[in-house]
């Protein structure tokens, strides 16, 4: 993903009479550019996944025969059923044609329609990752704002963050379950039923991300608090918290947003383990099973959907820069 480097912002002209117009223009051109590059990214995701699965070891027909005796009749039936008797390039083009029509095919292993499979599993995963993101942001902002520039709170928070970052989410999930579900019985262990079933998975997935972002955010806040404008604001008689929240946080958030955008991708892959521990439905387990079983239609569909999510996310991150930093809006593109 290409994220604009905020390091260049100093070179940009500041202030402009037609700021709003330019902002709109910049917004639309960015969105259009994004859609175009998004399509290319999706196509590349499909093609690369298709190619890498062909290169990966294991003949699909043999895989589908499994432990049974591979007779010629069985092999022929499997080839015919999945269209494997065509040359690869035909299979590839046919696949592209079908996905343009919204048909992602049928899973080799699960024998079910891939589109409905993915759609049924996408929502629980999105719920989990968004909730984890909220956890991460709340944690990061709270920890950073409350502890930046304060000697002992800062040390304590840093230590806690270090522990969280280095805790495997599998282990964190089991510990959270043990305490809050098995012992205190506050939250259910499994499933995707209501809000309470989302709390522990979101914490186990989001806290380590929050800990990373918090460290960057704190550093940014501390830099901002040293700036001359901070002194000015203080001289107005603003409370320290107002200074931090209303004035410094914005300055500190650019690198944190960049980092978060990158790490959200990690949330999607981290969801695999969290889903497994908490017995949640979701794309994670579907993906792992599909890759291990070389279930081509599912792997390709997952590649397309995750590429789509990345494209949307990085676009959102870019847009977020524009809102956070007025200087970026005047940039000529």
């Amino acid at each position: 993903m290409t994220l604009d480097n905020p390091a260049f912002i100093d070179e940009l002209p500041l202030g402009s009479p037609s700021r709003i117009v330019r902002f709109r223009h910049s917004l639309w051109s960015r969105v259009l550019g994004r859609v175009g590059s998004g399509v290319v990214v999706l196509w590349a995701a499909v093609t690369l996944s298709f190619a890498s699965l062909q290169i990966a070891p294991g003949n699909i027909v043999n895989l589908l025969v499994g432990d049974q005796l591979p007779t010629p009749e069985v092999e022929a039936a499997i080839r015919a059923e999945w269209g494997l008797d065509e040359p690869l390039i035909v299979q590839y083009l046919r696949y592209l044609w079908r996905i343009l029509h919204g048909d992602f095919g049928r899973s080799y292993v699960l024998q079910s329609d891939v589109t409905s499979l993915i759609l049924s599993q996408l929502w629980p995963t999105l719920k989990l990752t968004s909730a984890a993101l909220v956890v991460a942001i709340v944690f990061a902002v709270t920890a950073a704002v409350l502890t930046a520039g304060r000697r002992w709170p800062r040390r304590l928070a840093s230590a806690a963050e270090l522990v969280l970052v280095s805790t495997p989410s599998f282990w964190l999930g089991i510990v959270l379950l043990f305490v809050f579900s098995f012992t205190l019985k506050l939250f259910p262990v499994a499933g995707d039923k209501n809000f309470s079933s989302l709390v522990l998975p979101a914490l186990s997935l989001g806290l380590s991300l929050g800990a990373v972002v918090s460290q960057v955010l704190r550093q940014g806040l501390e830099n901002a608090l040293e700036e001359p404008f901070a002194l000015t604001v203080r001289s107005w008689g603003c409370s320290d918290l107002t200074l931090r929240l209303r004035h410094c946080l914005r300055h500190a958030s650019l690198p944190a947003v960049t980092l978060t955008g990158w790490l959200v991708g990690g949330l999607l892959s981290g969801a695999v383990i969290t889903e497994q521990v908490f017995g949640r439905p979701g794309l994670g387990k579907v993906t792992v099973d599909a890759v291990l079983g070389k279930d081509l239609p599912v792997v390709l569909a997952v590649a397309i959907f995750s590429a789509l999510i990345y494209v949307v996310l990085s676009t959102l991150v870019d847009l977020l820069y524009l809102f956070l930093d007025p200087r970026l809006r005047t940039r000529n593109r």
Partner: peptide, 13 residues
Amino acid sequence: PAYSGSASSGPVS
């Protein structure tokens, strides 16, 4: 085999 795939080569064969 069009229905049962590799199971068709098991004992049912």
